[in-house]
């Protein structure tokens, strides 16, 4: 069982990223669940998605101690980094977050890459998912892309898929380092 927490602020696509991830896991033949948590405002404010991927029925869909944290905002990072298992993994957005001590964590410049390579302010989430898929191998890139096709309106499918592909390819050096 893998417990994943994605966090950021409203508008970064945290809830969508959690759903794409869980949906992709289903396409890979696994059981998965996603819970989105957000405040009552449409943008801004702490937003979190709890995703569980398992081989059998998921008893509790809540992520208390996470195996993996994907953080796109300082507030989310600060709130959840201490709840990640010491053997776990953190991926954080380097332009937004000053990290604390943690054994295994990687700085991913997802937002800057989204801006420079895709001229988009909103696909940092997909770039993170691509990076996540490469380093963890928990979901396949193919299923992530199919998940985007099934869940994102056709107007934005292409840019989101590009985000996943860039995230998957671009940071392999960082992970090796």
């Amino acid at each position: 069982m893998t417990k994943i927490k994605l966090t950021g602020y409203g508008g970064q696509g945290i809830i969508l990223a959690g759903e794409i991830l869980a949906y992709a896991a289903m396409l890979d033949g696994k059981e998965s669940s996603a819970i989105g948590e957000y405040g009552s405002a449409a943008r801004g404010g702490l937003t979190t998605s709890q995703v569980i991927i398992n081989d059998e029925f998921i008893a509790s869909p809540f992520v208390e101690a996470a195996d993996i944290l994907i953080a796109l905002s300082q507030e989310g990072y600060d709130k959840y980094y201490s709840q990640v298992k010491s053997t776990g993994l953190i991926l954080y957005e380097s332009s937004m977050i000053i990290p604390k001590d943690f054994p295994r964590q990687y700085a991913i410049p997802a937002v800057n890459v989204a801006l420079s390579e895709l001229r988009s302010t909103v696909v940092g989430n997909m770039i993170m998912l691509g990076a996540f898929a490469w380093i963890t191998k928990i979901v396949s890139k193919r299923s992530l892309i199919s998940a985007v096709k099934d869940n994102v309106s056709s107007k934005f499918t292409e840019v989101n898929i590009k985000g996943i592909e860039i995230g998957y390819e671009k940071f392999q050096e960082i992970f090796k380092g």
Binding site: M26, E31, S33, I35, G36, I58, P61
Partner: peptide, 9 residues
């Protein structure tokens, strides 16, 4: 609210 907004297969 949890079951209502939960997404799973």
């Amino acid at each position: 609210e949890v079951v209502a907004h939960l997404k799973e297969s």
